[in-house]
């Protein structure tokens, strides 16, 4: 069945696949994970703040975004972001935004919802006494959160955050629908151009598998470590 399997096509495409495609994919994954965690933490703090209307706003945002398919959100943002930017700076016409940046904004805002649920669980899992002790020592809300709660919540939840980042890594393949030059996009384009889709898609699947599998094994090992600390 592999009699006319053309490995040369893959070898020729390697530099383009990895230096451009995989770099795009990894950059998008890492930056979106960082911004998503930051925004997610803000959402989690809002939800737990008990200060009307912050929990309601954050809750509505989380539930709203969670009920939409990522693809629909990608399409929304791709067309909307230039208009939003126009409103923001009061420009007379829509502002062109780099497709990578659009994708980054989309994934950060979308994945923040999932990161916020993780951070919320992390914060709630800490004994209430810690917060009370912090206040008793005269620390402010910001100090309690920054010095006591968030570092612990973040450390305890690190394996789950990383697992979500692996999901995010796989989700970035969806920018294929916008013809961006991520790893899958480039594999598809080369496959179509050279009439070698079979080879390119198998190779892409293999690469995604190896990276996700290796990463999730690493997370599992990390989990075993952090479990002891708790």
């Amino acid at each position: 069945m592999f009699s006319n399997f053309d490995f040369q096509v893959i070898i020729d495409a390697l530099p383009y696949l990895f230096l451009q495609g995989m770099v795009f994919t990894l950059k998008l994954t890492l930056l979106a994970a960082i911004f998503g965690t930051i925004f997610g933490t803000v959402l989690a703090l809002m939800r737990l703040s008990g200060v009307w209307p912050l929990p309601q706003i954050a809750g509505a945002y989380v539930n709203f975004v969670r009920s939409l398919p990522l693809l629909l959100v990608i399409f929304w943002f791709f067309f909307l972001v230039p208009f939003i930017a126009q409103k923001m700076v009061g420009s007379p016409r829509p502002i062109p935004i780099d497709p990578f940046l659009t994708a980054l904004i989309t994934f950060s805002l979308f994945e923040a919802v999932f990161f916020s649920e993780i951070m919320r669980a992390g914060i709630q899992s800490l004994p209430k006494g810690q917060v009370a002790a912090g206040y008793a020592l005269g620390l402010s809300y910001t100090q309690v959160m920054r010095r006591i709660v968030l570092p612990q919540a973040f450390r305890n939840m690190l394996p789950v955050l990383l697992t979500q980042t692996i999901v995010l890594f796989q989700d970035t393949s969806l920018v294929y629908v916008l013809s961006l030059n991520d790893f899958l996009g480039i594999a598809g384009k080369i496959g179509q151009r050279d009439g070698r889709l079979t080879e390119m898609y198998i190779f892409a699947a293999l690469v995604y598998f190896l990276i996700s599998f290796a990463a999730s094994q690493a997370v599992r090992r990390l989990q075993a470590h952090t479990a002891i600390i708790r």
Binding site: F79, P82, Q86, R93, P94, I95, S179
Partner: peptide, 12 residues
């Protein structure tokens, strides 16, 4: 499918 919206929204 993206060409017309992208012209209309000023990206291209």
């Amino acid at each position: 499918s993206t060409r017309i919206p992208l012209i209309a929204n000023g990206t291209v």
